[in-house]
């Protein structure tokens, strides 16, 4: 029974990684850049929700919505101010370094406003836990909400990308920006939209993460951010199902390693698995370079 409960916890943590990884992978797929500030957007989302709930006594759902709006606006602003001017830069390192700069900038702004002490986060899921098998297996309400959100996000996002005109424009931009422009697609707008979606998802991930692990500091975003980046690479960066699969596997591996091997070594094991996967399949689990005839 304890294995089952570890597994469920792993899937739940993995769902959070997956939602964050979606932001990484979509931005990478379309803007061809690694947005290392993505983890810190999660943290900003957490503070936005917390401020709404504590200072303004808002309903948790309002807190979540405000967090989504704040992060979406933040994502669009970061892209327009920090990344867009560098899109034509000679070296792709310029934008990568800028992303790291943005990451520190966000951490320090939050540090200035809210201080360095961790704040205890109030769960946004005011529901009772689910007890199964006469109380031998407890599934928290946060777990259920997290996994459900992840599934819904996956379905909505896949439908959006494959079925809508805007979604297909995103795919076109990710493949060939020049050809996409010749079709009449506004590349800047499409990239901004990608940042908006990724950052909105980061807000959801932030709120879910803080509900499950209720402590929030200016550095809360960095570790999940890095893990989600690993998850995206693990699943095949640029691939949306890959980010989902990578995230969930990563969460499960991490929790099982903590439970059965050593909690100190858990992160090392996670990264070791990544290295092995990349040695065997350098494009990640689902990242397949399509065979293109010329």
């Amino acid at each position: 029974m304890s294995f089952l409960s570890y597994l469920i916890n792993g899937i739940s943590l993995g769902s959070v990684y997956a939602i964050i990884a979606l932001g990484y992978t979509m931005v990478y797929g379309i803007a061809k850049m690694l947005n290392f500030a993505h983890g810190d957007v999660i943290m900003v989302g957490g503070y936005a929700a917390l401020t709404m709930m504590l200072s303004l006594n808002a309903h948790p759902l309002v807190g979540v919505l405000v967090a989504i709006v704040v992060c979406t606006v933040l994502g669009i602003t970061i892209e327009a101010v920090a990344y867009r001017p560098l899109r034509g830069a000679a070296s792709p390192l310029a934008v990568l370094i800028t992303a790291i700069g943005v990451s520190y900038f966000l951490q320090n702004v939050v540090l200035l406003i809210f201080g360095s002490n961790p704040k205890s986060f109030q769960s946004v899921v005011p529901l009772p836990d689910l007890k199964l098998a006469d109380g031998a297996l407890t599934i928290t309400a946060e777990t259920i909400v997290t996994i459900t959100s992840c599934i819904i996000i996956m379905i909505v996002l896949t439908t959006f990308i494959n079925k809508t005109k805007t979604g297909q424009a995103m795919q076109a931009v990710s493949e060939d920006k020049g050809a996409a422009q010749l079709m009449g697609i506004n590349v800047n707008k499409t990239i901004a939209l990608t940042f908006a979606i990724g950052s909105g998802l980061a807000a959801v991930a932030g709120v879910l993460l803080c509900s499950a692990y209720p402590s929030l500091s200016p550095y809360t975003g960095s570790m999940p951010g890095i893990k989600a980046f690993v998850a995206a690479v693990f699943g095949g960066i640029g691939s949306i199902p890959g980010a989902m699969l990578g995230g969930i596997l990563l969460g499960v591996i991490e929790i099982l390693a903590k439970a059965y091997i050593s909690s100190q070594l858990a992160d090392a094991i996670v990264f070791a698995v990544l290295i092995v996967v990349l040695l065997v399949k350098p494009t990640g689990l689902l990242g397949k370079p399509i065979q293109e005839k010329v």
Binding site: Q171, A172, E175, D176, A179, Q181, L182, G184
Partner: peptide, 22 residues
């Protein structure tokens, strides 16, 4: 570039540049 096509001008680029995954 993205405003050209709606003016009535289309461009078939060198190397075809179809969207391979669509």
């Amino acid at each position: 570039a993205h405003k050209i096509v709606s003016l009535g001008m289309a461009h078939v680029p060198e190397g075809r540049r179809v969207f391979a995954q669509l």
